[in-house]
Design a protein around this nucleic acid. Structure first.
Lengths: 153, 153
DNA sequence: TACTGATTATCAGTATGCTGTCAATTAGCA
DNA sequence: TGCTAATTGACAGCATACTGATAATCAGTA
C-alpha cells in the first residue's frame, strides 16, 4: 500500500478526474453546456418533480451548500424553476422547464457515450463487476460523508 | 443505464466524496491537518526529491494550475521548500523539510486506516479486484484528462 | 398555547480542479 | 547563430465540495 497508485483514495480521485473530463468532452461535442453534477440534478428532478432542495440533495448525495450553487446555475440557464413551497415556507420546490426537459433529452446520447468511454478499457463483464463493487462499497460507507444518500420521503 | 446510480460517472463522484470524507476524519483524529491531495504530493516528493512542479504534477496527474496552490499551502505549513532550479530558471525544484518528513511518517497509519475504511464494505478479494479494475480503466483513459499521468523523466 | 429542538436555505471561508491566457525561459531546428 | 516552438509557472474566472455559522420556519411537547 506504499505506492499511492494502489490506494483506493488516489484511484478514486484519478478516476473521477477522468470521468469528468470525458463527460465534458462528449457533452460539448454534442453542443450542450452542462456539468456532470448539473446533469444528475436535472435527471433526478425529472423523475421527482416538485421536490425541494434538501430532498434533491439527499437523492444524489450532494451537500446542502453545494446544491444551492448548482440550483442557481440551472436556474440562470433557464432549465429549472424555483418556487417557495406552499406547505413549508422555508423550502423551495423545483421543477424542470420546457428547456430543461429538452436539454435533458437531447443530452442523453452524449451522457451514455461518456459512461461507456469511462470504462472503455474494461471488458463488458468487468464493467458489470466494477459497477457492482462501486455500489457495494458506497452503500456500506454511505454515512461517512456529510451528504449521505437519502431516499425520497 | 437510466438510473444514475448505475452510471460510472455518478459512482465515481460519490466514491470520491466518501473517500475524501474518510481521509479527513482519520487524519484529523490522528492530530494532523493535511488533505488527500497534499498527502500524495508530499509522499511522491519524498520518493523523488528535487523534482520541479511540472514533474510532480505529472507523477500524480494533477493539473499544472492545481499543483501551484497545493505547493503554496504545503510551503505555508512549512512542509516543503521551493527553490529556483539552477539548470532551468523557469522551474521550481521542491524538497521536503524536516517537518514535512515527520508529518509524512506520523500520518502514515491514519492514511492506511482510511484506505481500508473506504472499501470496508468489500471482501478482501473484492478489494483486490476493485483496485485492479480501477487501475485498468484509468490506464486506458489516461490521456482523456488535461492532466495525464506522466512518468518521471 | 408557548417553548424547545429540528429543519431549510443561505453565507463566508477554504481547497480542489478545470478553462484560457500570459510572461519568462529553454530547446530544437534552419 | 537566430528564430520558432515548446515548456514552466502564474493569473483570473468558474464549478464542485466541504466547514461552521446564521436566520427563518416548522414540529412536537410541556
Amino acid at each position: 500500500m506504499t505506492d499511492h497508485f494502489d490506494m483506493p483514495g488516489h484511484l478514486a480521485r484519478r478516476f473521477q478526474q477522468i470521468a469528468v473530463a470525458i463527460f465534458h468532452a462528449e457533452v460539448e461535442a454534442a453542443g450542450f453546456d452542462l456539468t456532470p453534477v448539473q446533469y444528475v440534478a436535472l435527471a433526478v428532478l425529472r423523475q421527482h418533480p416538485g421536490i425541494d432542495q434538501a430532498t434533491l440533495a439527499g437523492l444524489i448525495a450532494y451537500d446542502r451548500t453545494t446544491i444551492g450553487g448548482v440550483i442557481d446555475r440551472l436556474f440562470q440557464k433557464g432549465l429549472i424553476i424555483r418556487a417557495v413551497s406552499p406547505r413549508d415556507r422555508r423550502a423551495h420546490v423545483l421543477h424542470l422547464t420546457e428547456a430543461g426537459l429538452t436539454t435533458l433529452e437531447g443530452i442523453q446520447p452524449a451522457v451514455e457515450a461518456a459512461q461507456r468511454e469511462m470504462v472503455a478499457g474494461l471488458e463488458p463483464a468487468e464493467v458489470t463487476e466494477f459497477i457492482r463493487l462501486f455500489r457495494k462499497a458506497i452503500t456500506a460507507a454511505n454515512d461517512r460523508s456529510r451528504a449521505p444518500m437519502k431516499p425520497a420521503p
